[in-house]
Amino acid sequence: MIALLLRDLRLAMRAGGGFGLGLAFFLLVAVLVPLGVGPEGGVLARIAPGILWVGALLACLLSLDRLFALDHEDGSLDLLATAPIPLEGVVAIKALAHWLVTGLPLTLAAPLLGVLLHLPDSGQVWLVASLAVGTPALSSIGAFGAALTVGLKRGGLLLSLLVLPLYVPTLIFGAEIIKRGAAGMAVEVPLLLLAGITLGAAAALPFASALALRINLR
């Protein structure tokens, strides 16, 4: 299992692995939105939580279609399915690797983009907290979507169509945490709900994803 995690991380870091693409996309969103909306600080500060969360969501989505598709093409997925590690574990590890190369860098880079979007200082800590708690759910849910569409030729678009509605609760609670935090309100309730979604998704979805993978492999 650790070997699989290390392999996926190594593949992401090597040339053509796509590490940093999501981060660059996230940065572009934060630059393009003010260009479209106008430079008014008050407006930007108000929409910053939503923009940052939508940006993180789309940046995650960007690399999802490669999650199983590459392993499917070169035969690794067949071999992993016949290997002595459970397929549920394979899915969980690959989702974890996906989070380490997309969700985690996004979380760490987010305060910088928060400054670009005039997010109040009181919101910064909640921006990082909400992304840290919420982005693992994005990877788990995304892995489920990727497992459903792994055998399809043009799976990328369908993947977005399947995954984005599933992202709704994560997005709502995540952005709500920042909004409330920036306004100095209590954030415990949305934070706990978001943590609940992440834990639930990480615990239960690998089973559904592994089921979908087995169906697609046969």
Partner: peptide, 26 residues
């Protein structure tokens, strides 16, 4: 395969649909 995959999607989707309902209320 389509029947199996959509059935799995329907199950997972139902859970998330209920979650979305509460999230949206919130």
């Amino acid at each position: 395969t389509a029947a199996d995959l959509t059935a799995v999607l329907c199950m997972v989707g139902s859970v998330f649909a209920v979650l979305s309902r509460y999230a949206v209320k919130f």
